[in-house]
Every structure is written in C-alpha cells, then in structure tokens.
Design a protein around this nucleic acid. Structure first.
Length: 281
DNA sequence: ATGTCGCTTTGAAAGCGA
C-alpha cells in the first residue's frame, strides 16, 4: 500500500471538522497537513480525528492562523516553528512580540518529514505584513537549507498554503493582480529560492494546471477564477518516492467548503498500516 | 458592489483577517 499525504488550508477546523474527516476517509489519506485551523490547541476537535483512526499534533495560538498534522501512520519529533522565524503583531506587556502559529513539522510513517506551513499573506505591498512575509520565507529557506545540508538524504516535504502564485498562469487574470501581493517579483523570487536550495514542486509535473483556491466573494469558484497557491516542495529523497498527485477540486463544492482544496501526493513506500493487517490469503 | 466567510467582542452589530 502506498502512503497518501495531503495538505489543506481548512479555514477553521471547528467550522468543518466533519467535512475534513469525511474526506480523509473517502480519499484514503494517511497524513494531512492542515493550515488555518483558527483555534487554540484545546479547541481542536481531536476526538473526531481519533474516532477515524488519526492521531493529531496541533499548533494553535488564537483565533488566527494555526497549523496541525493528522496521521494514521504515526507522528513523532514534532517541531513548532523554525529557527530564526520572524515575529509579527502587537507587543506583549513585557515588550516581546509573540510568534505566530504558522509552521510545524512532524515525522510520519517510516521517517518521512512533513512540514505544515501557512505563509503570511502579506496583505498589501505597502503593509508591514509584506516585508514580514518576505523575511519569513527567507528564514524558512535558510532553516531548510541548513537542515538539508546535515541530512541530504532525508525525505522531507514543505507543504501548505504558500500565499504565492509563482507563475502568471497560477492566477486567472494577471491584470487583476497588478500591484498586489502573491504575484510580486520579490515573492516569486523568495519562492524560487527554495528550488535553488534543492527542493522541487512534486505536484506541478503531474498536475500542470489547476487552481487550489477560489475566493468566497464574487462567484469566483463558479467562474473558475482561482489561484494556485498551495504547494508541496520536496527534497530529492521525497521526490523520488512520489508516484502520483491530485488537486481535489470537488472539495470546493457543496455545503460550507473551505476556500482552499486539498492537494495530495502518493508515495511508493510501504505503509506501516500494512504491518498489522491480517493476512487473508 | 469591498458582492463571502469565520472568529471575536459583545450582548446586535461591528471589527478584523483573508
């Protein structure tokens, strides 16, 4: 049995835990990296996941952002944030700025390292959130390069909502995005730097076109006016295991969808689930 | 149409973030 790993910006896990868990089972997903859980750790609906056979590791902070990893093939060595991660927001009474909950890693299955990432939006080219976004991406790239230098053969994937559209064809109309975040050259350069650091987009070669996000407003989904901003960037060792991928466009349909859809990669490795499966032949 | 969501503060409606 292959291992199926997905990433999904769920836009509040409390608002759609049923829908997410239902999809996990329907799509036969082993590991899910979630973004925008929009809750504290104690508010995460872990019971719904556990009832379906998934362990959960969460990194929530308040009503904003928040990431998590759900797995039915084990979770180990959870890491919250990354070395050098910039902070943003209102200073606390003691003058320090708290770190946002936008990045976590876990080792799943037989030694596969998965990062769940929610890259800062940037808001506007003139907003302080924009240089924060660029610095955040640069520090993540540096931390990733350093980790890869020490573990060149580690299968690792950086997956999540990157909030960058690397190609003009990743948005429905470049004219609409003139002067906006997500398509600026510094953002695209920051994204491309991960490829220079040795990571590759393992979905694009298999699924060359298609969006992963459609705004709730202005009938964007019915008009197919979307953006491709959710990616899986993988090390060589991870990329060599990838045998398939999908963008789950149907998950944008129906009742109370997230504005993002899941992106799935399938790996040619033995699932730990196989070990305790009874032999029936 | 800055046209929809989800969360929070607050006790119905507004602010924030995306």
């Amino acid at each position: 049995m292959p291992v199926r790993i997905a990433t999904w910006n769920v836009n509040s896990i409390r608002a759609r835990s049923g829908r997410v868990v239902d999809w996990l089972q329907r799509a036969d997903i082993d590991v899910l990296a979630l973004q925008e859980i929009k809750c504290r750790d104690d508010q995460f609906p872990a019971a719904a996941f556990e009832a379906a056979g998934y362990e959960v590791a969460t990194h929530g902070f308040n009503q904003w952002n928040g990431v998590a990893v759900a797995s039915r093939v084990g979770i180990a060595d959870v890491e919250l944030g990354f070395p050098g991660m910039p902070a943003f927001g209102k200073p606390l009474p003691d003058g320090t700025v708290p770190l946002e909950a936008r990045a976590m890693a876990a080792t799943v299955g037989d030694g596969i390292r998965v990062w769940s990432l929610y890259v800062p939006n940037g808001r506007d080219l003139a907003d302080p959130h924009y240089p924060y976004k660029l610095a955040w991406l640069d520090r993540l790239r540096a931390a990733t390069a350093e980790r890869l230098a020490g573990n060149p053969d580690e299968p690792v994937a950086l997956m999540g909502d990157w909030n960058v559209a690397p190609l003009d064809s990743d948005v429905w109309d470049m004219a609409v995005f003139e002067g906006s975040t997500h398509v600026s050259q510094p953002e695209r350069d920051a994204f491309a730097a991960f490829e220079t650091a040795g990571l590759t987009d393992v979905v694009r070669p298999l699924i060359p076109t298609g969006y992963t996000y459609w705004d709730y407003k202005q009938l964007r989904f019915p008009r197919n006016e979307g953006m491709r901003i959710d990616f899986v960037l993988a090390s060589r060792a991870f990329a060599d295991l990838v045998t398939g991928a999908s963008i789950e466009r149907n998950e944008r349909k129906g009742d109370a969808p997230s504005d993002h859809v899941p992106v799935v990669v399938e790996l040619d490795v033995e699932s730990p689930l196989d070990d305790d499966r009874p032999m029936i032949f």
